[in-house]
Amino acid sequence: MTVTKQEFEKKFGQEFRHDFAIIASWLPFGAKVLDLGCGDGALLQYLKASLEVRGYGVEKDDANWLACMSSGINVIQMDLEAGLSGFEDQSFDTVILSQTLQAVHNTEGIVREMLRIGHEVIVTFPNFGYWRNRRQILTGNMPVSKSLPHQWFNTPNVHLCTINDFDQFCESGNITVKERLVLTDNKPVTFMPNLMGNLAMYRLENTQLK
């Protein structure tokens, strides 16, 4: 049973996230889940409440770590960039990288590690090809928006990409895209997703490992 928007907001006092609900729909009940760069643990909290997942978060920031702990989320403090050798091959049902891809340096290495650790991998990221971003570039500035809230000089983002870029990345890396969903304002986008979509969500598996 998935939690409704109203139930979720009442229970957790935080805004319902459509992307969380989609991630939940991609997981089996009781799945063993690793959330890399789990932030304050909101996603794991949601997945725990809705699917009783056995979840672990990985987070390097002290304040976020404490927020996870306060919510009763298992949280491992480590820097993703330092490697994920602390996790065994294929030891999780699903490994998630939710809106963190754009902020990691060793992007390819981390996606490979996720595919090594999880049977499945979920990656979500803000689509840099979204028309509002393109418009800001055309008018001469780096995009600043709700999904890209930082200025160019203080952004943690280092590897912004478009949906086309990520598709090509998967194709060249022999990574199978099981499912792809694109959202704008919490609504699915099917028409010209690389232009019209704000948030890209991918469900991946590694064909080489299978």
Partner: peptide, 15 residues
């Protein structure tokens, strides 16, 4: 931490 994770135990780790 790794040995506990390998055994799917409940563990948190702070550095």
């Amino acid at each position: 931490v790794k040995a506990l994770l390998d055994n799917e135990r409940t563990v948190s780790y702070a550095e």
